[in-house]
Nucleic acid binder design. Structure first.
Lengths: 200, 200
DNA sequence: CCTACCGATCGGTAGG
DNA sequence: CCTACCGATCGGTAGG
């Protein structure tokens, strides 16, 4: 029994997006080419670009897909914990293992995309910026919740969110560029101290 | 009186490298093209690539040039201070103003190059790795000097070097992607605490 | 989803 | 340092 063509089309889009996300984590979201994607997927270039219309649309959809993977890997395990100390600790652990695994062959997709597009105006840059802002606001909110419940003290939520985000970038660089697995433990210490989970 | 051709050739190389470093900070070290460089320099493509032989050589020399600018901007002002607390504080201030100025139109060149090449083997990757390691070792050494002179305490030199480096990446991203000038002050607080210069 | 094709641009070379 | 050129590949389209 043949699948509906709509279902098949959706499946094709999914497999293309998966390949884009993997390749972009290595070569950058702008470094992908339709020809290379087509070759790796065993498809024609027209078949790759057709469902998306343009390279920029493909980039935007790949960015959305990467954000969804990040959410599933990092946010969802944390969201299962009660707000406060427990959620903050879970979030840090989930983030570190997302970076250590790593979820994408070339390391953190959003760090790569931010570095690639931060100086180039356009829809992709705007989307990266929006995702980054939203995440940093979420982080600050979780720190604030832990402060309000009296579980941590002596930290500024925005400052802590900024630091945890920066440390994640440092861990990613250490793993990807230096193949330094110790960076996970260094990152843990730094993130826990920045959020007031540990004293030092 | 005509300049010697050797002198003229050196001048040409310099102007090409300056353009490469600027463009690469925006589009990535792999995103530059000989054609665009030639157009911006008012030269032919052969004139741009000739003195270097290949795009990879040009990338390697641009990387060396960017490292020299970083050294002049960040290391040299710090090196004029006595080792220990004073030098550490000067280094942090010099680094923050290097990022805030910014020295390259697209922000920190080495962060950009690391993100671009960390997942792609080759000479460029090796060079980025070497420069990064050397710098982190230098940072750790300066923290150690301040500990040994008794000016700071309670910090691990490698941990502090890792954190300061990560915070610099966070400041760069905040400035470039979010146009957030407050990041300099957040970075200062985080770097000073990570190195034991401030308590909080 | 394919083949066949478009004009533009890629990195690089020959020859001067 | 230039002009003129190389084969390869780029993103994308027409037509089926």
């Amino acid at each position: 029994m043949p699948r509906s063509s709509r279902e098949q089309a959706a499946r094709t889009r999914e497999s293309i997006l998966g390949e884009v996300v993997d390749e972009a984590s290595v070569s950058g979201l702008d470094g992908i080419t339709i020809g290379t994607l087509a070759e790796h997927l065993g498809m024609s270039k027209a078949g790759v670009i057709g469902p998306f219309g343009s390279k920029e649309s493909l980039q935007l959809e790949a960015l959305g897909r990467a954000a969804a993977i990040f959410r599933a890997d990092v946010w969802e395990p944390a969201a299962r914990e009660p707000a406060g100390r427990a959620r903050l600790a879970a979030l840090i652990e989930a983030w570190l293992s997302h970076l250590a695994r790593p979820a994408f062959p070339g390391g953190c997709f959003l760090t790569q995309a931010a570095a690639d597009f931060d100086a180039r105006p356009g829809e992709v840059r705007d989307a990266v910026q929006r995702i980054g802002r939203l995440w940093e606001r979420t982080l600050a909110g979780e720190v604030r919740a832990a402060i309000e419940s009296g579980e941590i003290a002596g930290v500024d939520p925005e400052q802590a969110a900024f630091e945890v985000n920066a440390i994640a970038q440092g861990v990613n660089q250490a793993i990807q560029l230096h193949r330094d697995r110790d960076a996970v433990e260094r990152g843990r210490r730094a993130m826990r101290r920045a959020t007031g989970l540990s004293d030092r």
